[in-house]
């Protein structure tokens, strides 16, 4: 596992990257684009989470991929290359199978990208991004994120206290469990509401509600962020031009058809590859740089 230096970039860089790869991954059904995205997402998720990601990808994502690939032809009977007929009389076509495989790949890719997103775009980055546009709601988000772990801990305290007066949530039938759960939730609610009043006092005592509130952040848009952002923007533009030119379109029904591969297609493919692999490339570069510096010392 490599330490992910892409996470240390400015939230805007992180967010733009994920928005772009997620959107592109959801749109492009072309096998080359699908492949690039799937491989990049896989590599990055392994880089971020190590062995756990490999296990997760193989244990959950592979069966899901297969299941979805099979599911599609069962509902979709379009296409001209009929392979065989089901008992119900519906045909199974090659196109629908391939479409199933493609959309399954797409789905798995999106899930993988989101797993990377969850690891990189921590809540404070999100709150920073939206702190200026929606200050009220992003403050609420920050507060909820503060309260949830606190309430979860309190649930544990209450549940232990209840256990010690002879009411155990983990024992008894479903109704008894549910009843005890309700009691815990109820105690927690009162506790949360009553204690939150002091939180409100503390906010007002520190001037919340005065006009012209600003939004502070510890993130700085450094030079490396500028460079990365420019490169990323360039790549996105190339991919978008490619999209407009139809480089990424793929027709499945009635018969499979893609645009012919030209030099321009290769340029677009490369741009897309670099874009998707950007965090991986950055991480590897940092690693090499570090080793180089260390070796010089």
């Amino acid at each position: 596992m490599i330490i992910d230096s892409f996470s240390s970039f400015h939230p805007i860089v992180n967010f733009t990257y994920f928005s772009a790869v997620l959107l592109f991954s959801m749109f492009f059904m072309h096998p080359v684009f699908l492949g690039i995205s799937l491989v990049s997402a896989f590599v990055y998720s392994v880089m971020l989470k190590g062995k756990k990601a490999v296990k997760f990808n193989i244990l959950y994502m592979m069966p899901l991929l297969l299941f979805m690939a099979i599911l599609n032809p069962a509902f979709n009977h379009q296409g001209v290359t009929i392979l065989f007929y089901l008992k119900s009389g519906n045909p199974i076509t090659l196109e629908s199978i391939l479409f199933g495989v493609a959309s399954a790949c797409m789905f798995v890719t999106v899930i993988l990208w989101f797993s990377c997103y969850n690891a990189v775009m921590t809540s404070d980055k999100f709150i920073y991004l939206f702190g200026r546009i929606i200050p009220g709601l992003s403050l609420i988000l920050s507060m909820v994120l503060r309260f949830v772990p606190r309430y979860t801990a309190q649930i544990k305290v209450i549940s232990n206290a209840q256990k010690c007066v002879g009411r155990d949530v983990t024992q008894g039938n479903v109704i008894a469990k549910a009843r005890n759960g309700i009691k815990i939730l109820s105690i927690m609610t009162t506790w949360a509401l009553e204690n939150a009043i002091e939180t409100g006092d503390s906010m007002r005592a520190r001037g919340y509600g005065l006009p012209k509130r600003t939004s502070f952040s510890i993130f700085r848009f450094d030079n490396r962020d500028k460079v990365t952002f420019a490169v990323m923007a360039g790549l996105i533009v190339i991919v978008l031009i490619g999209a407009v030119m139809g480089e990424n379109t793929m027709r499945f029904f009635p018969s499979i058809k893609t645009i012919n591969t030209t030099i321009f297609s290769l340029v677009v493919y490369t741009a897309y590859f670099i874009l998707c692999m950007l965090p991986v490339i950055i991480n590897i570069m940092e690693e090499i740089k570090w080793k180089y510096i260390v070796s010089r010392i």
Binding site: I140, F147, Y151, A178, G181, I184, A192, A196
Partner: peptide, 18 residues
């Protein structure tokens, strides 16, 4: 803000009680 935050947090954490 507090009311909205507290109730949302209860709803999220409430899953923990069950």
């Amino acid at each position: 803000l507090i009311v909205i935050a507290v109730l949302s947090a209860i709803a999220v954490a409430g899953r923990g009680a069950f």
